[in-house]
């Protein structure tokens, strides 16, 4: 990994594009700028980029369309730059193949952190999109991993935090296995695990409150004596969350 990370930055506004390119260069990235989607397509034909930073609202072909094209044609990860913070945009952004998004105006340091996270994930999982299930079903509950939602057996949405969601996803992926705290932390939060260190028992208890009929005698998320926790339910992987 001696090659510098090569970023293709696509934004029609030079007032943002130029200082951002400057900043990212200062952070040790190699940055190529493109003012519109057409220029970006030309550049991508000739070079390989490590990652794309893509503005959604652009004259001509917009960012979403370009993102779809990139996701279909290559494995280059994409981070969307968007002016809107609506939930719908997030869903669309992730469904059309973007790896992450930041909402303008963003903290540039956070953008750098996101770039690194996305690159790390891309390096670790070579073939993510195809085999990854769209959701899980256990004991009547549905965990939609695309829209990041939990639905109870009666079809009502159960709002849960991102941390709880990740934890539940880990349980579903490893149903029947006993996971100790360290494994749960590592699987759910990766390198940021140390931030959640103490919270894992707390998160388990919050999760139980939401999915267990009686959280004093849990039936689904069971505590294993001396070992850790396990999801004691048959889990079905869903190709599409809408057709369980």
């Amino acid at each position: 990994m001696t090659d510098p990370v090569h970023i293709l930055l696509i934004d029609d506004e030079p007032t943002l594009r130029e200082p951002l390119a400057e900043y990212l260069t200062g952070q040790g990235f190699a940055v190529t700028e493109a003012g519109d989607a057409a220029k970006a397509r030309t550049l991508m034909r000739d070079q390989r980029f490590s990652i794309l930073l893509l503005d959604i609202m652009m004259p001509g072909e917009d960012g979403l369309s370009l993102c779809r094209h990139v996701a279909a044609q290559s494995e280059t990860p994409v981070i969307l730059l968007t002016a809107k913070g609506e939930a719908m945009d997030r869903i669309i952004g992730l469904e059309i193949g973007a790896d992450d998004y930041v909402v303008k105006p963003f903290d540039p340091r956070e953008l750098v952190a996101r770039i690194k996270t996305v690159l790390r994930r891309a390096a670790r999982v070579p073939q993510p999109a195809e085999d990854e299930p769209q959701g899980f079903e256990f004991d009547g509950w549905t965990l939609d991993t695309v829209k990041r939602r939990l639905t109870d057996p009666d079809g009502a949405l159960v709002p849960i935090s991102t941390a709880e969601f990740k934890l539940l996803q880990v349980f579903c992926e490893h149903a029947g296995h006993v996971l100790n705290r360290d494994q749960l932390l590592d699987l759910a939060h990766g390198r940021e695990a140390h931030l959640f260190d103490r919270a894992i028992d707390n998160q388990i208890s919050r999760l139980r409150k939401k999915v267990e009929a009686d959280n004093r005698s849990p039936r689904l998320i069971k505590t294993v004596w001396g070992g850790g926790y396990t999801l004691a339910a048959r889990v079905r992987r869903l190709a599409s969350p809408d057709t369980p």
Partner: peptide, 21 residues
């Protein structure tokens, strides 16, 4: 409003990046 939002947020984002220096 969408246009105002976009038009204000992009320069804000630019400002936010420049502030880092």
């Amino acid at each position: 409003l969408g246009a105002i939002g976009h038009d204000l947020k992009t320069p804000l984002a630019a400002l936010r990046v420049r502030v880092e220096s």
